[in-house]
Design a binder for these strands. Structure first.
Lengths: 162, 162
DNA sequence: TCCAAATCATTCATGGCCAGAACGGTTTGG
DNA sequence: CCAAACCGTTCTGGCCATGAATGATTTGGA
């Protein structure tokens, strides 16, 4: 049994993050299929929710994806009536995207489905473990430039930072 | 801002697991490139470390991957001198794989590299948070059938299970 | 003992997903 | 007023991985 610093390769956080991420994404994608959506479709809806009225290029940057991919994603979502495409009158090159009511509803359903999966994933974890997970994910998300909501600090509201 | 149960979609564990998993895997893959390896190559080395002397089919099941993929991965690793392929004399259909010294060395390097990334990822977390995080990942890995080492229990060594 | 079915590894064709190049329409700034 | 930059779109190509088809070997009855 090969050990480096007392840990095996398969016990490495880097390895597990990749594998579990793919596994969980797969499970979620399967659940999404019944809405006729792929993961990135919901990604676009979500991006549009945090950046309302964004252009396709802005969405592409937010999603870290080629602009050409946004085209096909938006095509599908538009055909499904989830988003609206509007030429910006001030700059007729830009396509401004916005969620329709149906799109918002869809996103809400997908969010609910994700929360259900979240609950299943964290079932059996202690409260401390759950807290550590969300804390770590918040940190990582912020460190990687993903959208993060500032959570209200509940502890000492202002420990002297000396 | 669309909220379901007070959380946005992008704050969902399911979403973040997928995205961060892919992001981290990407970073690690980049580090691996200097060894001329892809992620799954190291995956094979790691699988072979936890299941020494396994056949290709067993490795495929362990890695949750098509047997045909193991062929090309093993081809590459064998050419690199990291593994040995041996026909099982007792059943000449089976190809028994085993790590060479060079393979073990390679795996050790990759593990060390992963640990360095791990440290960077968890930097800023308190020791308690790190412990809770690894515990949570242990649970998730176990729940998904990934190899997990039983860690020595340090608390009450034998609470009466009545 | 013998043969049909099962098993393992391998090759090959195929598909999904995505980035990058090429193009037309539009805006900007000198 | 025109060249350069910019945005969206189409289309081609690459990478990765699966599944089907093949050949070699083993196994479990009849």
């Amino acid at each position: 049994m090969l050990l480096v610093n007392d840990v095996k390769w398969v016990e490495t956080l880097s390895f597990r993050f990749g594998v579990l991420g793919a596994l969980i994404a797969d499970r979620y994608a399967q659940a999404l299929a019944e809405h006729g959506l792929k993961l990135k479709h919901v990604g676009l809806l979500g991006a549009l929710d945090t950046a309302p009225g964004a252009s396709q290029l802005e969405i592409a940057k937010l999603m870290r994806v080629a602009p050409s991919l946004v085209v096909s994603l938006a095509d599908h979502l538009e055909a499904a009536g989830a988003i609206e495409r509007l030429r910006d009158p001030a700059d007729r090159r830009r396509q401004v995207l916005s969620l329709t009511d149906r799109g918002r509803d869809l996103l809400a359903r997908c969010t609910a489905r994700a929360l259900a999966l979240d609950a299943e994933l964290t079932e059996g974890l202690t409260p401390a473990q759950r807290a550590a997970l969300t804390a770590a994910f918040d940190r990582l998300a912020a460190a990687h430039g993903l959208p993060v909501r500032e959570r209200p600090v509940r502890e000492q509201p202002d420990a002297d930072p000396r």
